[in-house]
């Protein structure tokens, strides 16, 4: 139960965070909704990160950054919410501020301090090891890129061209499948989508911007 001692810089960082958050809230209540408010918010956020980081075990750093990302999003959400008035922002404000409070608890629960341990006891914190730990970040990024590619391909070429292409490329380039089985994969996907959606269900699937543009060029 004996956590690391709380150092002076940590106290300072926490103080700056609290002040910044208060300033953010006060200015919003005064109906000052400018982008300039991002400045105290960012300072407070960075100060908090600086304050907390030394108290978190190295293995949990990626979780810490994620938790801070969550908080940044919540503060952004609050900033947007203050643009509205009355009933429109009533619930979003409750939800946003509750979120910030929970997010602070979440961050503290990652620290090796007495507070961190206390939060664990009350809420039942994270499992000792998140299932994601120990994954290869490069592979994850590659996968995100592949996924984003699929959307871009569909947007450009439409489902009927992009889908088989995507399946083929993935199987061939990432999965290390043979040319023949990758081709089969692509053709099978196309057949499935075409037969079910276009032929049986009479859907007109998205044609793709590039294809539509080309068709416009060809047609009179």
């Amino acid at each position: 139960m004996n956590g690391a001692p709380i150092t002076m810089p940590t106290k300072l960082g926490a103080g700056v965070f609290a002040l910044a958050l208060a300033a953010f809230a006060m200015l919003h209540l005064q109906a000052v909704h400018q982008t300039i408010l991002a400045v105290p918010a960012a300072i407070g956020w960075a100060a908090a990160l600086y304050a907390v980081r030394p108290m978190v075990q190295k293995e949990k750093h990626s979780s810490l950054y994620f938790a801070f990302g969550v908080m940044a999003f919540l503060i952004f959400f609050l900033h947007e919410t203050y643009e509205f008035t009355g009933k429109v922002r009533y619930f979003p404000l409750i939800v946003g501020w509750t979120g910030v409070a929970l997010s602070v608890l979440d961050i503290l629960s990652l620290t090796e301090t007495r507070i961190g341990h206390a939060i664990h006891t009350v809420f039942g914190g994270k499992l000792e090891e998140a299932p994601g730990e120990g994954r290869k970040p490069m592979r994850e990024i590659a996968c995100f890129v592949a996924m984003a590619m699929s959307v871009v391909l569909i947007w450009l070429l439409g489902f009927l061209i992009a889908s088989p292409l995507f399946v083929f490329l993935w199987m061939r380039m990432w999965g290390g499948k043979t040319l023949r089985s990758s081709l089969y994969g692509g053709v099978f996907t196309l057949a499935f989508i075409w037969v079910l959606f276009e032929w049986l269900l009479q859907y007109e699937l998205y044609r793709g911007e590039l294809v539509l543009w080309l068709m416009d060029m060809i047609q009179p």
């Binding site: 009927l160 061209i161 075409w194 032929w199 699937l205 044609r207 294809v211 080309l214 068709m215």
Partner: peptide
């Protein structure tokens, strides 16, 4: 329509 998508 179907053909259109495959071969403009």
């Amino acid at each position: 329509r179907l053909g259109a998508a495959l071969i403009a």
